[in-house]
């Protein structure tokens, strides 16, 4: 029981407090690439703190506008809860893989609600872009996880990484998953919905103060959820051969391994972000569509058992 509580505590810390730190590190990495001193790695905490302490200015009376950041936050949170943290999965049940996809889509829906609830061509354009982007990438994510599920004969995210067998289609599935996670995370060149220099942060354009802070925090948590999924799929199959994950120490070791890989991946992402320009929405959609069809081929290969 004690062990469970400790894991639960660590998990909560990771979900709430790690994302801003990761963002801070990413900013520092970018600064280094750009020969800058850069802000402190804790800068994102300071930003969030000051935003959360500020009264928002409301451009509209609509409830949807005020509620959207909280929906986004709740969805991002829900998405993290079905992921395995070491041996610990906060909410585990069969079919949670669908829930994961649903709540991620919910996050985007919250963005769209935010964008469409005000009469502003910038937020509308942003919401539109978010919709198009999510419609083109969610299937890719679904297909990628589908290949894993097919391989592992499991529909639970906690169960998939422990039961996969190594086949050629699996490598392709990893590539697909990495791509989907990257796009869905809204990293450059796919930060199209929030493009600052084009549509002034799109759906977030009219937000300020606490509501903006909630949105930003939610976005960081969503990124963590996506990356944690990828990291778990990468780390757990390896760790299960080295340690016994179900024991306390084994679980802890796995968690540490997950964290290490997460930091490395976040660093790599920062480098990719720093060396790319933003794509246009039509370019991104075309690319995503191509990847989706490639994904279907991978699914076919996996279904054939390779």
């Amino acid at each position: 029981m004690m062990e469970k509580i400790i894991f639960a505590l660590i998990t909560v810390m990771i979900i709430f407090l790690l994302p801003p730190l990761l963002d801070g590190i990413s900013r520092k990495v970018k600064a280094k690439i750009q020969y800058r001193v850069g802000a402190s790695i804790f800068q994102t905490y300071y930003d969030l703190q000051s935003l959360l302490n500020m009264e928002p200015i409301l451009p509209t009376e609509r409830l949807a506008f005020r509620i959207a950041p909280y929906i986004a936050f709740a969805s991002a949170l829900a998405a993290t809860l079905v992921l395995p943290f070491g041996s610990f999965v906060p909410v585990a049940f069969t079919g949670d893989f669908f829930v994961f996809l649903y709540v991620l889509a919910m996050f985007s829906v919250a963005m769209m609600i935010a964008g469409f609830s005000v009469n502003n061509s910038y937020t509308n354009a942003g919401a539109n872009r978010e919709m198009m982007l999510i419609l083109s990438i969610e299937p890719v994510l679904g297909v990628a996880i589908g290949v894993f599920a097919l391989n592992a004969h499991s529909l639970s995210i906690g169960g998939i990484p422990l039961n996969i067998t190594f086949t050629p289609s699996l490598i392709l599935a990893y590539v697909l998953l990495a791509y989907a996670v990257y796009v869905e995370g809204g990293f450059i060149p796919f930060d199209i919905a929030e493009a600052e220099t084009e549509i002034l942060e799109g759906p977030l354009c009219e937000y300020s103060g606490r509501l903006l802070g909630m949105f930003k925090w939610a976005m960081l948590i969503k990124r963590l959820a996506l990356l944690w999924l990828f990291v778990s799929f990468l780390v757990l199959p390896i760790m299960k051969n080295i340690v016994d994950i179900t024991t306390f120490t084994g679980g802890l070791a796995t968690l540490v391994a997950q964290l290490v890989v997460l930091f490395i991946i976040y660093g790599i992402i920062a480098i990719i972000e720093a060396s790319n320009a933003r794509l246009r929405i039509d370019q991104a959609i075309r690319q995503n569509t191509k990847v989706f069809f490639a994904g279907l081929v991978v699914l076919l290969i996996a279904a054939l058992g390779w």
């Binding site: 970018k30 750009q34 060149p189 493009a195 790319n276």
Partner: peptide, 16 residues
């Protein structure tokens, strides 16, 4: 031009 397309590294280096 780099900054407008979100390519901040090009922006920073050009200005450097």
């Amino acid at each position: 031009a780099c900054h407008l397309t979100g390519f901040d590294t090009g922006f920073m280096h050009a200005w450097r």
